[in-house]
Write a protein that binds this DNA or RNA. Structure first.
Length: 506
RNA sequence: GGUCCGUUCAUCUAAGGGUUAGGAUUCAAGAUUUUCAUUCUUGCCAUAGGGGUUCGAAUCCCCUACGGACUACCA
């Protein structure tokens, strides 16, 4: 068997969205699993939709996620160039080959002609399709005399090259995910292969490139299934059937709110990033959030995406990239579309977060602290991380859970104050302050013992002591063990915070 | 409209003719926690509908319904 070679072939019309990321991931897993090659090809045959920066974005996003390429536009390789605009000179000869063998023809119909035709049909409630039933009445090299065709070609009149579908032929697609799909050629239209601007369309360029790059498996989104018959016919027309790649059409990623496939336009409307990295539209300057900037870990994104449409059939839920490679198989890809689940995405990130070491988390949290001009002591920050990581999904949420470790509370939870701050509380707090002040060793254990001794001695419930003290130190009823917090803050700071709450409540 | 693809808890999914239809997330309750979170336990919740085939169907076939993709000189 020939070497496994797969490609991820995005069009640089904007940022890659997570559906595209998943397609890239599955290609990557498949290639690695079989010791094959992974190729990045840029399909920029549509000059009108080219977006500057999109290609660099795609590369940066996949690099961030740990998806590596063996060949491609950014790393080179034996089949270079890997950008279709750079391969432009080679496509014409292939189109000519199809002309010579009778599989294609020149068509001179203008967009206006075609629009008019479509309107005309629409009025009769019919669908216009450029195919065997209509091509005879159009303006093309099948209907025009040879001399006229030649005259038009030499005089520079715009034309396209269309594929000439055979009449009433069953085309079989052997899809690795969907099984056999059969389509009759009468239902297909004579697709444009070569545009009047001198560029090939996706269909031609894609087949030529997959062939010349010796691609063994085409793993792409389901939106390509309807044009797969054309692609199969092209391989046949070129005489490349023997080396035609196997096809695998992936189920789509759907919007969480119900209808339709996830698309680039959804942006932040749905409450979660649609893009791996933040993207600023070069024209509108509109900013769309990215997973990276939102605080997702790349491993969590990969894990979550891998399981959206595929599963290994075991109950394990967490997989490293290497484990995914080891377990991956096209046979276990599901057929139906998957909706993105925001809550589960959060959960995945949370699990990856708590699995990090305190030092790793501290390194990330320190960046946030520095932005707030908080002086940082790495060992202290790591301790804080160990105490609050259970309660957050993202590093960005840590400030909210841990600010009191760094700054005195600026306000106190009013609802809790109303309920917990009793008439005798100020006296208790004053006692607690004095008692803590007397502690020579301000350790967790000593604080704990002292607090318990105090409340028992006074015949008070622990709640009457601890809750007001908690409010004084953290601002509300949340956070880790109070003795630990007090010890970390230090005696003087604890005394200051008690004074402060007493001063504002009197 | 036409063609193609699909349909198991709210969501991701397992079960490839024989299981009380399993797991995970979410949600709810309880235990723990002097707070909050964690953790643990428990619970709720599904084979779209109808016909076949079969001793036996989530699984195979057909019809219907619903969802999706495609239907450009876009990819």
């Amino acid at each position: 068997m020939n070497k496994i070679r797969v490609r991820f072939a995005p069009s640089p019309t904007g940022p890659l969205h997570i559906g595209g990321v998943r397609t890239a991931l599955y290609n990557y897993l498949f290639a690695r699993k079989h010791g094959g090659d992974m190729i990045l090809r840029i399909e920029d045959t549509d000059q009108g939709r080219f977006v500057p920066g999109a290609e660099a974005y795609i590369i940066e996003a996949l690099t961030w996620l740990g998806i590596k390429f063996d060949e491609g536009v950014h790393v080179g390789g034996p089949c270079a160039p890997y950008r279709q605009s750079d391969r432009k000179p080679m496509y014409r000869a292939y189109a000519d080959q199809l002309m010579d063998s009778g599989w294609a023809y020149y068509a001179f119909d203008t967009s206006e002609d075609l629009d008019a035709k479509r309107k005309e049909y629409e009025q009769e409630k019919k669908n216009f399709q450029y195919d065997a039933s209509t091509r005879d009445m159009m303006s093309n090299s099948l209907t025009l005399p040879d001399e006229e065709v030649q005259r038009r070609l030499v005089s520079g009149i715009p034309y396209v090259i269309r594929f000439k579908f055979p009449v009433n032929t069953e085309i079989h697609i052997d899809d690795l995910i969907r099984g056999e799909v059969v389509v009759n050629s009468n239902l297909l239209d004579d697709k444009v292969l070569f545009k009047s601007d001198g560029m090939p369309t996706y269909h031609l360029a894609n087949i030529v490139d997959d062939h010349t790059m010796e691609i063994s498996h085409v793993i792409r989104g389901e939106e390509w299934l309807p044009s797969a018959p054309l692609h199969v016919m092209l391989y046949k027309a070129f005489g490349w059937e023997d080396t035609m790649p196997r096809f695998a059409h992936l189920p789509l990623l759907l919007k969480p709110d119900g209808n339709g496939k996830l698309s680039k336009r959804d942006g932040d409307r749905l409450g979660f990033p649609v893009f791996p990295l933040q993207w600023t539209d070069p024209v509108t300057k509109e900013v769309s959030s990215g997973y990276r900037e939102s605080g997702y870990f790349p491993e969590a994104v990969v894990n979550m995406l891998a399981l959206l449409g595929w599963n290994p059939g075991i109950e394990q839920e967490f997989f490293s990239m290497n484990e995914l490679i080891d377990l991956f198989s096209l046979e276990r890809i599901s057929k139906s579309g998957a909706k993105f689940d925001l809550k589960k995405a959060h959960w995945f990130n949370h699990e990856y977060l708590i699995a990090k070491t305190d030092e790793e988390l501290a390194g990330l949290f320190i960046k946030i602290l520095e932005e707030k001009n908080i002086p940082v002591e790495p060992v202290y920050v790591a301790k804080v991380c160990s105490l609050v990581k259970d309660r957050v999904n993202f590093v960005s949420e840590m400030w909210e859970q841990a600010s009191f470790f760094f700054v005195t509370p600026q306000s106190y939870d009013e609802a809790v104050m109303k309920k917990r701050w009793k008439e005798n509380t100020p006296t208790i707090m004053q006692d607690v302050k004095n008692m803590l002040d007397g502690l020579a060793d301000f350790s967790e254990q000593n604080i704990h013992d002292a607090l318990h001794a105090y409340s028992e001695g006074k015949g008070l419930g622990m709640g009457q002591v601890m809750i007001p003290l908690r409010i004084a130190l953290v601002g509300g009823t949340f956070g880790p063990d109070l003795q630990v917090i007090a010890a970390m803050l230090g005696k003087e700071e604890v005394k200051r915070r008690i004074d402060k709450i007493l001063s504002v409540t009197i």
